[in-house]
Amino acid sequence: MRATDDVLNAIRRHGAEAYPEEGCGFLLGEMNADGVRATRVHRAGNERATERERRFTLSPAAYRTAEAAAEDAGLDVVGFYHSHPDAPARPSETDLTEAPFSGYAYVIIGVEDGQPAALTAWQLAPDRSRFVEDDITRDAAATPS
């Protein structure tokens, strides 16, 4: 995954602000055969009614809102992020079971005692059997605004 510093820092910030709950949102940018380039973050609310310290939900309505914001900016929804408060920045079994399609970038920000920690990116294997860690290449290009 390629991402600008602005995107990576916005994810870290959201993870810290949502602590001790999980924060989540969408990555906007471009997707092609080479992968995902994230140029903007679209924050969303964690729509879980309970257990928000360890679970998150992004509803289809939230996806549609993010998709509209992406279209307005000439971008696409290219992935998702969520935080793991006081837990490793690795996908859980639940993350695997409830992930949608392969091809999106799945970013996890670990948050320890309210401070952003490891930030990792993952690709869902095409057969949905596992997540494969993805390198994050910092993209120097300016974030369109």
């Binding site: 509803s59 996806y63 969520h82 859980s92 639940t94």
Partner: peptide, 13 residues
């Protein structure tokens, strides 16, 4: 007609 994914997960199952 729109095909729209929803996403869920979290630190612990």
């Amino acid at each position: 007609v729109s095909i729209v994914p929803s996403v869920a997960g979290g630190a612990f199952g």
